[in-house]
Design a protein around this nucleic acid. Structure first.
Lengths: 338, 338
DNA sequence: TCTCCTGATGTAATCGATTACATTATAAAA
DNA sequence: TTTTATAATGTAATCGATTACATCAGGAGA
């Protein structure tokens, strides 16, 4: 069997209390004793049991992440790997573990399990909406949690988000600068707060440039490729060729590009297209896609940092990270100035 | 505070042992007592502490997954999300949790932590190579583990893999059927066993068709887009236009496609290209990419199933899941028969 | 030398469950 | 009714750490 603290105590000729003090860097241990204990510990390759420590300390040193595998979610948040990478780094720095699960249905059941069984000290909540039952549960049990993405209603909880409004603003400003005026906007589902924020950015850029809003230029999508394709097809079918289209996801933008090309309209020459997210495919399509890149890895890192801060009783504040416009081939082509 | 088993026992007027029996569906509890205890449990919303149970049972009911973020890995295994989804489903069916981490360096340190601290009951090992120190550690501590992908050397441990050889075989057979003879193969790093397997499939298809192997047609890549691009460029620069190229990853295939198009060679018409993996971008590029699809989600599911089986003392066997050739536009074009 | 203080160490309770063993209640058999 | 088998329940040890409190040793100061 793997050694326990008792074995170490026995072999070092001290009590378990002393071993524990050595393990936790307590100051009240004589150098001689400490050395003796450390020697035995090294010899036996002893590492204290995480479970026992958790039980005694009434803390699991773990944070929970449950990813809903709803379509909305996957496409509004394609960078799961990067997010997790950042989250993992942040957790590891503070010696926390991540308990991970994906779930389609019964998500509340899984939440109940994580929370009431005391499997985690805090939760990462993704894809949150108004009146979310997960938030209600966590609040009622006073379990720390951090929301990924900005909640739309009251802001009485901590979140990490990217500057969606500014990102959209920059994208549209870029299109305006190229001389475009008929700039369509294919947004995400309107119930998501990212959608509201991006719309704000779109409107702000137009207003600032003194371009009147044409509501016929606003479309609601769902982040899926097919939807981008369909919306552009419809536009073209009714003879309504835009100067530019700003899509709220790269995936939709790629669908839209296909529709343009099928109609013999060359993206990056006859029309400009901008996406959002900077997914790997944005670089692989031809022409490569101008898009708004989000620091997803940093989002993950900050979520971990804030959440663990909350767990440890610090006073933390929500964070909004900057987005960046990445100009590629889908917009550098000549502009069709009216 | 959240209620403990003692609170339930007190309120129900029984001992903690009886409450525990109710919780664990022990047969020796009278219906009357059971009902009384369950009533209190429901009233207080009591759920037993996972930590306490783990300590007593000397089992954490968790499996560990550490994903190395090395470039090789990411590109040879782009479907992390899907894999995790399957793994998660498998784990949840057996009421296990997944402890997840990503790691660049110090991966052994993290392994030591997971294993010696007894954070997990078993490990999922990805991206394994010959004489892997992780495998050595797990073996020496007798901690159950399952390897994702087939080890190349001795098979004295359990793995879940896809039929890489058969996948490559089908892909090349498809190209041969189209009439291609000069079929180049851009493989992955030769130290990976997937690469060896795919090479085998390539060779087998050629042999079966009576096509002699030209070793100049074999190239070593690294799964990255740029490498695919470079290799094709070099080929074309020395005036060596292939009939078809089979890439060991979609990402390389997409790079290769770019190189062809830049040289005015139309993929799907003048040359055929086949990839491997079926990443989302395979559908988004133009022409869409013919590729070998792997059931990544099932791989994850089976890994969980086997690993938990091992932990619970069952006698489990390695699994190889079938791949599927997905024919798209990059190969349906007319073949350049010699 | 004696007292007092401080630093080092030990004792034992504790976290919240499970479980071997002991005990008691209940029903069947004699 | 008494004996005996069995079902139901309780007692207390246990998993492996942490920690409040007790104790002890040794040095400073009187």
């Amino acid at each position: 069997m793997r050694p326990s603290i008792k074995d170490i105590a026995r072999l070092a000729g001290v009590s378990t209390a002393t071993v524990s003090r050595v393990l936790n860097d307590s100051p009240n241990v004589s150098p001689r004793t400490r050395e003796k204990v450390l020697q035995i510990i090294r010899k036996l390759n002893y590492v204290p049991s995480h479970t026992a420590r958790s039980l005694r300390r009434e803390r699991t040193f773990s944070i929970g992440l449950i990813v809903p595998h709803s379509a909305d979610y996957i496409f509004s948040f394609p960078y799961l790997n990067l997010f997790i990478k950042g989250l993992s780094r942040g957790a590891r720095e503070k010696k926390y573990h991540i308990i991970f699960s994906t779930e389609d249905e019964n998500i509340m059941e899984l939440y109940e399990e994580f929370v009431r069984k005391r499997v985690v000290d805090g939760m990462v909540v993704v894809d949150v909406s108004d009146g979310d039952p997960r938030v209600a549960l966590l609040s009622s049990l006073k379990l720390p949690f951090v929301v990924v993405g900005r909640p739309s209603g009251v802001n009485d909880y901590i979140y990490v988000d990217t500057a969606n409004e500014e990102g959209a603003y920059e994208a549209v400003k870029h299109l305006l600068k190229l001389g475009h005026r008929k700039i369509h906007f294919v947004n995400g589902p309107s119930h998501l707060s990212v959608s509201r924020q991006r719309l704000k950015g779109y409107l702000k850029a137009l207003e600032e440039a003194g371009v009147a809003l044409d509501t016929r230029f606003l479309h609601q999508g769902d982040f899926m490729e097919e939807t981008g394709y369909t919306i552009v097809k419809e536009l073209l079918n009714r003879g309504d060729k835009p100067d530019a289209v700003f899509f709220a996801s790269d995936t939709m933008a790629i669908g839209g590009m296909k529709a343009f090309e099928e109609s013999g309209i060359q993206v990056g020459v006859d029309v400009s297209v901008v996406g959002f997210d900077d997914v790997p495919a944005a670089l692989m399509v031809k022409p490569s896609l101008t898009t708004v890149s989000q620091p997803i890895c940093d989002v993950g890192y900050n979520v971990a940092r804030l959440l663990i801060g909350m767990i440890e009783g610090e006073d933390v504040k929500s964070v909004v990270l900057p987005t960046k416009l990445v100009v590629r081939e889908s917009t550098v082509g000549g502009a069709t100035v009216e």
